[in-house]
Design a protein around this nucleic acid. Structure first.
Lengths: 216, 216
DNA sequence: AATCCCCTCCCCCTTGCGGGGGAGGGCGAG
DNA sequence: CTCGCCCTCCCCCGCAAGGGGGAGGGGATT
């Protein structure tokens, strides 16, 4: 297995980044890029056609998100190993990706050599985590069990979603339409997230979200 | 001038992105990458040493931001032409960069060929704007004259005062007490400032104020 | 003096927002 | 299976927020 050439599919919506990655992988004889996709849908299609051994996947793409693409790949029983390669070092992204079955998580600001090493590691069937990712993950697992103190409170997925929409200035009615739920339900979520964050109004919530660079 | 080889310095904190860019530029005989920097400080130092003709600069870097790097480059009277190459298509970033003296603004999701063309354009001393950037800028300028002058004063003293209190999350009633006027009067001012800024609610006003670093 | 702008206060009215409660279905952990 | 969490929807209620209008006083400009 490890003496064969491993085929690689690159899914990233930045053409320049794809070029950089492909160029990098070309340096390694045991790996060969067999396809590039600029979005999630195209990536899924190519994965089906090419049956690559490795898939390098960007989170944070327009259209179908990297996370959703990952889920779809795993749901399709693809036996490709999927390695996330992204700029996001957010704990939530790391955790979500690994939970969704990612076989590796690398950061784009890693040294190219380190990326290459990690890919070889992944090709051998082992988990490939960037150095900093391991720390992030350790942190995440540490406060996963206990309620987080101070200002990072545990909001649910839905609440975070709604908070981000509040931070865009949207009204409950608008949010309801966007999420295809009733306004009443939106109000329930707003009520809960305000209480969790100990804030008095959606205005404070919006300010807090903007100031803290909150992203869903 | 245009028949000489133009030297290029790449400043980007993602090694992979630098590789992609350098690889791309290597395809063009008239351009040559003479240096790469992974952060703003290093970029300033290399710019001083190498005196490149073009500088490709990423916004959104750790440490010294791209914008600050740009300002420092311009303040240093570098005669290099600085082209921003970033993922951010936010109006504010585009406007801020061009205001700070950027000689071009390209988006990383442009086709590599288009990037190369733009660089050649920039090398000839012309402004290099990505296609979508031109639209963004047009929008920005359109808004600029009427509703949202970042530092200009369509708002009266009182209105700015009240906007800053809204940006602190205060209610009309609270604001009234703080300014020792009636709540009704506060509402009048809120009504007026919302109309002047073309915003739909105090939430949008708060977000706008926070984002634009509004201070009374 | 006549205007114009700003600030102040008032009215009415509709809609939005947040808190209280309850309730059912889904899903995963124990 | 039961418990707890999450999401969903519903009720009622009181207050906040915005939009419409009008009106008076003060200050600066013309």
């Amino acid at each position: 297995m490890s003496d064969e050439i491993q085929t690689v599919l690159v899914i990233d919506d930045h053409p320049l980044m794809r070029k950089g990655i492909s160029q990098l992988i070309a340096l390694e004889d045991s790996l060969r890029v067999v396809g590039e996709a600029g979005n999630g849908h195209q990536g899924l299609e190519l994965a089906r056609q090419l049956q690559p051994d490795l898939i390098l996947l960007d989170l944070n793409m327009r259209g179908l998100s990297g996370l959703d693409t990952l889920k779809a790949l795993k749901a399709a029983d693809s036996d490709a190993r999927v390695i996330i390669l992204t700029v996001s070092d957010h704990e939530d992204d790391v955790v979500a990706a690994l939970r969704a079955g990612a076989d590796g998580y690398l950061l784009k600001d890693m040294e190219p050599e380190a990326v290459l090493d990690s890919l070889k590691v992944a090709a051998q069937g082992r988990m490939a985590l960037g150095e900093r990712v391991a720390e992030i993950l350790a942190d995440a697992l540490r406060h996963e069990n206990q309620p987080r103190p101070a200002d990072s409170v545990r909001l649910t997925e839905r609440e975070r979603e709604i908070l981000s929409l509040i931070a865009m200035g949207h009204s409950n009615k608008l949010i309801a339409r966007e999420l295809k739920i009733t306004e009443g339900t939106v109000k329930v979520h707003v009520k809960h997230l305000l209480r969790k964050l100990d804030l008095a109004s959606r205005v404070e919530a919006a300010i807090w979200a903007v100031r803290s660079g909150f992203r869903k």
